[in-house]
């Protein structure tokens, strides 16, 4: 029967197309990281260097910190590379990660419209700035996605003793880029990581208004998912990646990454 023959070859074709190109899984690791790291372009700079040196292919999945940690908890990634210290420590304490290793930092900045209705420009105190924004009920765009940036933002509100609510406070549930896109249009204040900000092109009217507060320090950590918890974890290659990140070569590579002459991340491995 012709039909049967056609059906058979179509099925075979589908199966062939679905099948993976044969890759030695040993030389591949999956890293769950954050949108801010990915969007900043850092991985495009680092990974080719690492891959050339070790022959290990790194597949980066950019998610919010919360989602990235969940990916690690499920054992769907070998390494987690995020920036939310308390959540990372809990991840390790709960037995999902081997150890948390500090790699680099950058900082958060408060951006907002140049008109600056809350009059916070030039300040160096994040809590004061947030208080002014709340008092003037100036529009504020929050990521609202459980990301590291979102957690940092909520910590500042808490310190200011403010429970942000009302029509001026917009929880977007989006990544850093979309949040900045929205903030530029509203316009609204927002808390952003410097890496995303520097590489972000659609700033519109937004400017950096507050920076330099110690509270805005943003530490990045990297964690190997515990192979005793998930046996499919490629621990050897994952550890090699972590070792490389904190090595002199890796640290220098991080320091070398610049956009428009500006360094985005400061290596600070111990």
């Amino acid at each position: 029967m012709n039909t049967v023959k056609t059906l058979f070859s179509a099925t075979a074709l589908a199966a062939a197309l679905m099948a993976l190109p044969a890759t030695a899984q040993d030389d591949v690791i999956t890293v769950a990281s954050t949108t801010s790291t990915e969007n900043s372009g850092l991985f495009d700079h680092l990974l080719p260097l690492f891959e050339e040196e070790t022959g290990i292919e790194v597949r980066v999945i950019a998610q919010g910190t919360g989602q990235a940690l969940e990916t690690g908890r499920r054992g769907d990634a070998d390494v987690v590379f995020v920036h939310a210290k308390p959540a990372e420590e809990k991840f390790v304490a709960d037995g999902y990660g081997v150890a948390r290793v500090e790699v680099m930092y950058n900082d958060f900045i408060i951006v907002g419209p140049a008109k600056d209705p809350a009059d916070i420009a030039g300040g160096a105190d994040a809590v004061d700035a947030f208080t002014s924004i709340a008092e003037t009920e100036s529009a504020f765009a929050s990521r609202g996605d459980e990301s590291g940036t979102n957690k940092k933002e909520r910590a500042i509100w808490e310190e200011a003793g403010i429970e942000p609510s009302g029509s001026w406070y917009r929880e977007l549930g989006q990544g850093m880029g979309p949040t900045l896109n929205t903030a530029a249009q509203m316009p609204a204040y927002s808390l952003a990581d410097r890496g995303t900000w520097i590489s972000f092109e659609n700033r519109g009217d937004l400017e950096i208004l507050v920076e330099g507060d110690n509270r805005l320090f943003n530490q990045y950590g990297v964690i190997l998912v515990d192979p005793e918890r998930h046996e499919n974890v490629n621990a050897e290659d994952g550890q090699a990646f972590i070792d490389w990140l904190v090595s002199d070569v890796g640290q220098q590579a991080i320091a070398d990454y610049k956009l428009g002459g500006e360094q985005l991340f400061m290596p600070n491995a111990k």
């Binding site: 999956t30 969007n39 991985f43 950019a62 880029g177 896109n181």
Partner: peptide, 24 residues
């Protein structure tokens, strides 16, 4: 897919990524 560069990045996920980066 995870939008992994060079592995699972498609036209649509690349568009989403560039939008997120603000490179409209």
């Amino acid at each position: 897919g995870g939008n992994i560069a060079g592995y699972t990045r498609t036209m649509t996920t690349a568009i989403a990524l560039e939008t997120a980066k603000g490179d409209l």
